[in-house]
Simulated scan of single mutants.
Amino acid sequence: MELILWRHAEAETGGPGTPDAARELTEKGRRQARKMAEWLNRILPDDCRILSSPAMRTVQTVEALGRKFKTDRALATDASAEGILQAAGWPDAEGTVLVVGHQPTLGYVASLLVAGEEQEWHLRKGSICWIASKADDEGDMPYLKAVLGADLVNR
């Protein structure tokens, strides 16, 4: 299985009374999402399963891909690392799963898989962390396949 964690792109700060889940992407965030989506679309398999938090900024980020996706409450702003892993089907799901979500939870997921414990790993807005788990002669250990910021895409 391969799990791609995509942090939503830059969002508005929101004014008084604006629900957190309603915050939208800024113009910079829309550019970040488009750039990363272009890169991802070149390499994602056609059968990639795509899950998104229902928050507006994550939905707008994943919409840049132009692919079918499913929103899942388990990926919302109050999600847990274990909840995200369960929604993605880690480690038993087949193929590739792309999860579009939030900090600090995506950092917790990455650190849990790679380091074995939840730590404060920071994923920048619009960036991805690609983790794979494949059996080899060293065991079935997850490993970092790629970490890429939106600012490095298409350079």
Rank of each mutant, 00 (worst) to 15 (best):
R73T: 11
V99M: 07
L40I: 08
Q86H: 11
V147M: 15
E117P: 02
E138V: 02
I4K: 11
L152H: 14
I128G: 01
G14I: 04
T26H: 11
D136H: 08
Q86E: 15
I131E: 04
K35D: 13
V153A: 10
A81D: 11
L75F: 11
I43E: 15
E38A: 15
G83Q: 05
R67F: 00
P142V: 00
T58D: 09
A81M: 07
M1Y: 03
M36I: 10
W121P: 01
G139M: 06
E38M: 08
Q32C: 10
A81P: 12
R67D: 11
S80I: 01
I128R: 06
K125P: 06
K35Y: 05
R73P: 13
W90N: 00
S111N: 06
T77A: 14
A88V: 05
A64G: 03
V100S: 12
L152V: 09
A33V: 06
M141W: 10
L98E: 02
K70P: 00
V59H: 11
M1W: 00
K35V: 00
L75C: 15
T26L: 03
L65P: 12
D78F: 05
L113C: 01
A110N: 09
L65V: 08
E117G: 07
V109E: 12
I50F: 09
V109W: 04
V114L: 15
N41P: 09
G116C: 08
L65S: 11
G15V: 06
D136G: 15
A132V: 10
D46K: 14
V59R: 15
H8G: 12
P19G: 01
G126C: 09
D92L: 07
Q86Y: 05
R57E: 04
G29F: 01
K134Y: 05
M141I: 04
L51C: 10
D140W: 12
M1V: 07
Q103K: 07
